[in-house]
Simulated assay, not measured.
Amino acid sequence: MSLIAQTPQPPYYAVIFTSLRSELTQGYQAMAERMLVLAQQEPGFLGVESAREDVGITVSYWQDLHSIQRWKTNIEHLEAQKLGREKWYTSFKTRIAKIERDYEFIASDNQAG
């Protein structure tokens, strides 16, 4: 699996979830893996990128706002949100942005150096 999501030509949307974790970890990894599987099954899901150090940042990409709303109200996702508030996070923020433009660089295997 690529660490960088392969997204279509813009416009599309990004949901940026930034979090600070609590000391409680039991069940977190399994739930995170389940949420990824479920999100990938949602119509309109385009990809995801995630990093965790002191601050966790997960960016998921979506075709449109309707797809994001449908994911937000998925019954298993609602349960994960509840558990996140109760156990796994000390704080989090969710931002939704419209991607108007993107560009990329991919190093070639034939580069000198």
Rank of each mutant, 00 (worst) to 15 (best):
110 N>K: 15
17 F>D: 02
16 I>C: 08
20 L>A: 11
48 V>M: 09
73 T>G: 04
5 A>K: 05
19 S>R: 06
82 K>L: 02
12 Y>F: 15
14 A>W: 03
88 W>S: 07
83 L>G: 02
105 F>E: 04
51 A>S: 13
28 Y>S: 04
30 A>R: 09
56 G>T: 08
45 F>Y: 13
64 D>W: 05
66 H>R: 01
55 V>T: 14
109 D>G: 10
66 H>W: 02
105 F>M: 12
38 L>K: 05
42 E>K: 12
63 Q>R: 14
60 S>Q: 02
31 M>F: 04
92 F>G: 06
97 A>L: 11
1 M>R: 11
46 L>I: 04
69 Q>R: 07
54 D>R: 14
27 G>R: 06
3 L>E: 07
40 Q>N: 09
46 L>D: 10
96 I>T: 14
67 S>L: 03
88 W>K: 03
70 R>T: 00
109 D>R: 10
71 W>N: 00
86 E>M: 12
93 K>Y: 09
75 I>W: 01
37 V>Q: 15
17 F>K: 08
14 A>I: 05
67 S>T: 00
90 T>F: 03
100 E>R: 10
11 P>N: 10
89 Y>D: 00
34 R>A: 09
93 K>D: 11
51 A>Q: 15
85 R>H: 05
87 K>F: 05
94 T>V: 15
74 N>G: 03
90 T>V: 11
76 E>K: 02
104 E>Y: 14
61 Y>D: 05
110 N>F: 14
112 A>M: 13
76 E>N: 01
106 I>R: 14
96 I>F: 08
61 Y>R: 01
25 T>K: 13
